[in-house]
Simulated scan of single mutants.
Amino acid sequence: MDHEITTLTARLLAHRWLPRTDTQVKRALVDESFRVELEARLATAGLVLLDNPFAEHVAVGLADDMLDAVFGGREYQTSTMGLTRDEVALLIVIWALIVLPKRERQLGRRALSDDGQNDMFGQEKPIAYGEEVSGAISEAALMADFGSQLGGKTRIRNFALGKLARLGFIERRNGFIYEGPLLDVLLDYRTLADRIVNGTLGDVLAAAGHRLAQPDGEEETDETDAAGDGSED
């Protein structure tokens, strides 16, 4: 087991994230002793395992008590990834447009193509991941709705979206923006959902024609005890 934990730790550090379908990751999610040993190994380097049972990937991040020592001062509270205020705002908008409806479908055990009308046993399905439940947003529509508020269309298209893609928050394909491996891991649904839906951003999104469902409490899953939430802003 020690060799497998060492290997998984090295892979997490090298790749930054791994899919939940990975054999070693799946063991960490269901084998309590393996998970405890993995977390202890990461803790010796000031790291924690980041896992959200609704996300398709797991990742590693800094332990809270290491933030000041690593980043120095309090500036990191804005962003630990070098994002500007406009880029953080863009990230939150994208998160709201992709993750909020995705979570609604996951909690309802519905796929993108399912309106929930014809499935008597939908609540008995396992929670789905990937593009089965996570939709895409058009870059052109995003520019039209929010370009002027978020630094200008040229800056968003040529710089901000590319930066978010390199960091692993999004994927860009054929003019559409898809969920990246870190979008639903690093941004905490429990913290953000209510603030967005019932806050100023919810009004801005509604004015642009985007319907945001009222957030429900995330239910426990079979993996929750083993995985925990682990998300952080």
Rank of each mutant, 00 (worst) to 15 (best):
F71M: 07
A144K: 15
L62P: 04
M66R: 13
Q77C: 11
T78K: 14
R109F: 04
P101A: 04
V93C: 06
I94R: 00
V70F: 10
A141I: 07
I127P: 00
M120A: 15
A128Q: 14
E87K: 07
E139G: 04
I127N: 01
V99L: 00
Q123E: 12
L112P: 01
M143N: 06
L62W: 10
S79K: 05
D119H: 08
E104F: 05
A141M: 12
E131A: 13
E104L: 03
A136E: 07
A111H: 10
I94Q: 06
A69P: 05
A63N: 05
A136N: 02
Y129H: 14
L67H: 08
W95K: 03
I92D: 07
E131H: 14
E104D: 07
R74T: 14
P126T: 01
I94D: 00
F71D: 04
R103H: 01
E124A: 15
Q117C: 09
L83C: 06
V93Y: 08
L91A: 02
D114C: 08
I98R: 07
P101I: 05
T78H: 14
T80L: 06
A89E: 10
G130H: 12
R103L: 09
E75V: 10
G108H: 09
D114F: 00
R109A: 05
E87G: 05
R103S: 02
D64R: 11
F121Y: 13
I94E: 01
R85M: 09
M81C: 11
A69V: 13
A69T: 12
Q123M: 12
S134C: 06
R74M: 13
D64I: 09
R105T: 00
I137S: 02
P101T: 06
W95T: 03
V70C: 05
D145V: 08
T78W: 14
V133H: 03
E124V: 14
L62C: 02
F146T: 04
I98M: 01
P126H: 00
E87Y: 08
L83H: 03
G147K: 01
L107Y: 04
L97R: 08
P126M: 02
L90W: 03
S79Y: 02
G122Y: 00
G108T: 11
E75M: 11
K102T: 03
D115V: 09
V99N: 03
F71Y: 14
D145R: 11
A128T: 09
Q106D: 02
A111G: 11
Q149H: 15
G130C: 00
A89D: 14
T84A: 12
I127S: 03
D119G: 04
L90G: 00
F71S: 00
L107A: 05
A144T: 15
G82L: 03
Q149G: 08
